[in-house]
Design a protein around this nucleic acid. Structure first.
Lengths: 252, 252
DNA sequence: CGACCTTATTGGTAGTACCATTTCAATCGA
DNA sequence: TCGATTGAAATGGTACTACCAATAAGGTCG
């Protein structure tokens, strides 16, 4: 085997050097997803360093979502298949710490959603579009219940968004969508609290899915736009807490 | 002071628990950016654990970009102001490991750029628009030189993109723009290698800036679109390496 | 008063010992 | 022979100690 790893250079930050070497090995696919890294004690020898340093390096890689660690015999650090959920965490940290306005995030989502919709109509096959339609119906059915389960409703809404993103056949959009949802799902939640908004939102989803299925880009875009009209209207109402003066969104 | 930190619960993953507690304290702004966490030896006492565990927790937080660590007396872990560079690192990991196609990223940029442009026309004040125009001229001037400096050209291009994003008055778009640029600046670089593409791209930028200045949304959108026609055309040419058959982008 | 030195603080590294969990093979029993 | 039990080995998780290296602050000497 090639000398993949070379002893860590001194100078106050050995664990960073080690983390970089391992990360490089993963990126160059010298170690592939699913494979195991040497044990901590072996790495300790390879890098000619203490075990604590190794552990710190592994901890950083784990945080990056590059590896996962299992205990016990035959345990160790395994190279992980990249999951969007890990990659989007820092994005949500950014959102939280910057006190991003809901309006700003909504702008992003609206922009992305419109592109995604256009792409989905052009690229998704018939089966996928039908599946989207089915999922929209499932959402509507959830709302038929006497006591609709909020968590399930949000989950179904989330699912629709992700599915639509996947239909664009562009993984970047899927990543963004997941990141945004992870960061700010709470606002969509608000949309499902009022029975009135809830009903309209669900109807809107069904309409969107249908128009995508029928390949009507312009109509679908307009319908998607309406989703955000609803959302901003709802958030505005909520801000005026208790004293709603008038409703300014389109009723249909 | 409240008892911010409680001893880590056992069960095989103390450092995670500790990292969560500290992260929560940061998010709730019990510790604000710029402030210092207790020293490792103090934390060791607060959490009733070993120093190694503390160090692992801090390493994870550092990787998340939440803290930075300084050595020496009066050193320690300081809560960091969130920087886009940290937040966008995981994004570029995602891009690298997923082997994202340039085309996919271009789709995102085109989508975002169009929204940004629309917002910028509506929201930026006259001075900012004029400044954008000046920067576009600066870019053109750089190209007048007998031996144009590639790095400076890319830098100027980057600057224009960021500036435009800022003019949208929406920090989320700025983040996305920066992240994308960090991840895939190499492709824009290609655009500036051919003198022919370079000239057209720069002219296009000037045109865009002018149309934004004059408040012509539709024209500006079309011009922005042309930028990506150029970019895809250029990348395509480059892929056909050496045997360019025909040029398929708009000449003007 | 300024340049230099000392010291205290703090992160960084090394090493050891031991614990908890997990796997797997050897052993025991029916 | 087959199954269950047990025990050893591998491996990550924790604790503790000692020492190194960098840094800042204060004291000392010229």
């Amino acid at each position: 085997m090639n000398p993949i790893f070379t002893p860590a250079k001194g100078g106050g930050r050995a664990s960073e050097d080690i983390a970089l070497q391992i990360e490089a090995a993963i990126m160059e696919e010298k170690i592939k997803p699913g494979e195991r890294l040497p044990s901590e004690r072996e790495l300790q020898v390879l890098f000619e360093t203490g075990r604590g340093v190794i552990r710190e390096a592994l901890r950083a890689l784990k945080q990056k979502g590059l590896i996962e660690v299992k205990k016990g015999s035959k345990g160790g650090a395994f190279v992980k298949e990249v999951e969007v959920s890990n990659a989007s965490e820092s994005f949500s940290i950014f959102l939280k710490q910057q006190h991003i306005e809901p309006d700003h995030l909504i702008e992003l989502r609206e922009s992305i959603d419109k592109t995604i919709t256009t792409l989905a109509i052009a690229r998704a096959d018939r089966a996928e579009k039908q599946e989207l339609l089915r999922n929209a119906e499932k959402l509507a059915k959830l709302n038929m219940e006497p006591e609709p389960d909020m968590d399930k409703l949000s989950e179904a809404d989330r699912n629709l968004n992700i599915r639509l993103a996947q239909m664009s056949k562009n993984p970047v959009f899927e990543w963004i969508m997941r990141a945004v949802q992870q960061g700010f799902s709470s606002y969509d939640y608000a949309l499902y609290e009022h029975p009135d908004y809830r009903k309209k939102t669900i109807e809107n989803w069904q309409k969107t899915a249908l128009q995508i299925f029928e390949g009507e880009p312009l109509k679908a875009l307009s319908t998607i736009g309406n989703h955000y009209v609803l959302l901003t209207g709802c958030l505005k109402d909520k801000k005026e807490e208790g004293r709603p003066k008038k409703q300014e969104f389109m009723t249909e």
